[in-house]
Write a protein that binds this DNA or RNA. Structure first.
Lengths: 111, 111
DNA sequence: CACGGGTGCCTAGCGTTCCTAGGCATGAAG
DNA sequence: CTTCATGCCTAGGAACGCTAGGCACCCGTG
């Protein structure tokens, strides 16, 4: 398993939300909160830098809307974003399986 | 959700290894590697600071052995360590369920 | 004997990530 | 007019994992 899989699953979560439909920042926070049953309550100071990072690396693309005189920036997955999400999901699955193997009370196989 | 649950599952993994039996640093690395089917290959520079942190916070206790003229430091879980492991496992479970909720069952547009 | 490889411990410092703590602006509601 | 919700943003810090070293001992091989 390459890279730093022990942290940083947040990007995957954000990409997952945006994979369903384009959303703007506040809505992403809300979606994560609802879909995770209140487990994830991101502060804005956490989310926005992530969005900027993802946009900069080309995984999402943002566009400004104007809704009732309020400006919003909506983000959508790019093709690269879909690919990255696929990869990150695979990686997450490996990670969680590995964690379960280690913490599961299962006594060491073979033997 | 309290604390920084998005990262830092490493302590739990180390505690899990030590919950089975006391081990010294190198052996912990090896156990993690084997039990995770090579998913986790910790560099020493990652593990040792964790062990020191855990010992300092009283979750594990270390003792020096002498094996064939080589010195080793073996660690074992304290009572607090067992409690902490329980708590961290609970936390991990919540986390992984929440992640699955967000990423799972996604009506992938292209599928 | 010398030397490399495996065992075994350690630390300084870095890059990244997430969060705290602010700031700014608009519209709706009291 | 003031407060609340919406909506965006950034600077700075803390924590974490990793890189990249160092030290020391044992054993096998050349």
């Amino acid at each position: 398993m390459k890279g730093n899989v022990l942290k940083g699953h947040l990007e995957m979560l954000v990409l997952s939300v945006l994979a369903r439909q384009p959303r703007h920042g506040y809505a992403i926070i809300e979606d994560l909160r609802v879909w995770s049953d209140d487990a994830f309550e991101l502060p804005e100071g956490t989310l926005y830098p992530v969005l900027h990072r993802l946009e900069k690396s080309g995984l999402i693309s943002g566009s400004w809307d104007d809704v009732d005189g309020r400006r919003r920036k909506s983000y959508a997955l790019t093709d690269g974003g879909h690919a990255a999400l696929d990869e990150q999901r695979r990686s997450w699955h490996e990670f969680s399986v590995a964690v379960e193997s280690v913490i599961g009370g299962v006594p060491w196989p073979s033997r």
